[in-house]
Amino acid sequence: MYLPYRRATQFLVFGLMFVVPVLNIFEIYVITGTFYAINFGGLGVADPSVILQAIFAAGEITVPLMTAAIFPLLVAILLGRFWCGWLCPYLFVSEGIDWLRNKLCLILFRRPPKSSATIEKAFSANLTRFSFLICGTALAGAVGIPVLNYINAPAIMSAEAMMIVKERAVSLEFWFVVILLVLQLSFLPKIWCRVLCPTGSIISLFRTSVTMKVISKSRPQTTPCCKERSCLSACPMGLAPYREAGNLLCVNCGKCIDSCRFNRLQFTGFQIDDAAPVIPRQQSDS
């Protein structure tokens, strides 16, 4: 079961967004910074997409820029999109919004929502977010300002948390996040994480053979192996894990693994041997 641990870390990160500025006010500087760039007692970590933009905007690669991006990329190589699935405050809120959307749809229209993701095909979603990242970085290089920072939702959330604690005010970007969440609630579900997020895009590019990912043992992979399609409804990124396990969109949250009653979805490195035998769909249905 991964869900309780994941919720615990997500709660912790969400709470720390507000606690860290309070500690800073009392001059305890163990953790400083926002999700643009953060420092845990000396270990500097910066959002790789932000660093990429700074490199393009300034037109130079400096030592501080490189060192800031090393640690997150190391985590990305080992654990995949661990940041997105387990720490990112936006996905935490976004999951809540998706849950709310389902509930509201059931109450208002007496049926589950029609679409669970903005761009249905995972390939097109990947294509969109990578081209968004490339266009944004190119624009940053052309204009000389890291422009994607203006809309980096998780980082804005932490910066606004700091603003609320320190100055008891919110800036314009706060309303950007609110609008994004409202859009997500109404008619563009999972718009940020699935279609736009530059941080997620750049993290998912660092996938190697050692990177932890979900593998599917369902055969044949073209059709779901159980009627309820539990993994499909569980996935917070709108993937169909029985055939798209280990897609670049996957955030390693482990929800599909929890939901699969045949244990056919597993993390690489955490494989269980007593997985139910791989059975064709017709037999499992009968």
Binding site: T32, G33, T34, Y36, A37, I38, N39, A46, D47, V50, I51, Q53, A54, A57, A58, G59, G144, I145, P146, N149, A155, A159, M162
Partner: peptide, 10 residues
């Protein structure tokens, strides 16, 4: 500065 500042507010 505008190119390098990533607005992390540290």
């Amino acid at each position: 500065f505008m190119a390098l500042c990533i607005r992390c507010n540290r």
